[in-house]
């Protein structure tokens, strides 16, 4: 997977060429709109009520179009002038746009927005593009200003691509310090391709939504499954049925495998002698 955030800062990477590429590529459009729809779903806004939303890193307004369709009013922010000027204006999106670096914080009045969404943006904040940038500081600034700009109760949903667990930890930690509740929602955790991470932040006390299950995205229409329940069911089969059929060798192999996974040292190699009985010599 290519990571544009490792190539150059966002305002430079999304120059005129890249901005145009971004909006004319139908695959990117499809993925973006899918993620936006899911993000809107996670926002759990009251139905049939026009809401006032914030689109963080709106870019060319792909996600904004979906917000328009859903009948919401929105405000977009992005750091790339090319994305905003070249494309957003040509596409005639409804929302109002701001050219802004979210890491610098923003000055909306407290309680302005009914919710916020952000698609594939947060990972950009983790880079220090100049010597004066400090990712933890920028994250804190971003989250504290966002927290105050949101109404109580409301939600902010971020889809993002973390490159390590440390990054996830850093992000959740700064969000919590800023006063947000909530956590990470992982869709299709078992699929390499469809796996998506959403940071679901809440102002006020709310319950964290669940991630989507299954290997493929196609199956999602069938509804959200409960991860822990599935795990339990799987364990039930392992615990109940299999144990009777399991031979001594299988049991030993399973244990050895488990030790290897746990990183235990000195687990003997597997061979044809594994789990055989020692014969009496005389």
């Amino acid at each position: 997977m290519s990571r544009p955030e490792e190539i150059s800062p966002p305002e430079i990477f999304y120059g005129d060429d890249e901005a145009r590429k971004y909006t004319s590529n139908s695959r990117i459009q499809a993925i973006q709109s899918q993620m936006t729809e899911r993000a809107i779903e996670l926002l759990a806004l009251p139905e049939d009520q026009p809401a006032f939303l914030l689109d963080i890193g709106c870019g060319s307004g792909l996600s904004g179009e979906l917000l328009d369709e859903a009948g919401h009013y929105w405000v977009g922010m992005d750091i790339s002038p090319s994305m905003l000027a070249e494309v957003a204006l040509e596409r005639e999106v409804e929302g109002d746009l701001f050219l802004q670096d979210i890491g610098q914080g923003f000055g909306f009045r407290p309680g302005t927005f009914d919710g916020a969404i952000s698609i594939s943006v947060l990972q950009w904040l983790l880079n220090a593009d100049t010597s004066s940038h400090s990712p933890p500081q920028r994250l804190t600034r971003f989250f504290t200003t966002l927290h105050s700009a949101l109404r109580n109760p409301s939600r902010a949903v971020f889809q993002f691509y973390p490159s390590s667990d440390d990054q996830v930890h850093l992000i959740t930690q700064s969000a919590q310090r800023a006063g947000f509740g909530g956590g990470i929602v992982v869709d299709y955790p078992n699929s390499k391709k469809a796996r998506k991470m959403y940071l679901c932040l809440m102002v006020g006390h709310q319950e964290v939504p669940r991630g989507l299950e299954g290997e493929e995205e196609v199956s999602r229409r069938e509804g959200v499954r409960n991860e822990t329940r599935r795990k339990k069911e799987r364990n039930k089969i392992v615990g109940g049925k299999k144990r009777k059929e399991e031979s001594g060798k299988e049991w030993v192999m399973k244990k050895k495998e488990l030790y290897r996974i746990r990183g235990k040292e000195g687990v003997p190699r597997d061979s044809k002698y594994t789990a055989r009985k020692r014969r009496v010599q005389f």
Partner: peptide, 16 residues
Amino acid sequence: SNGIPNMLLAEHEVGR
């Protein structure tokens, strides 16, 4: 400009 306010600050203008 073009209906888009430029809210960018230079790095030295950002408070700590």
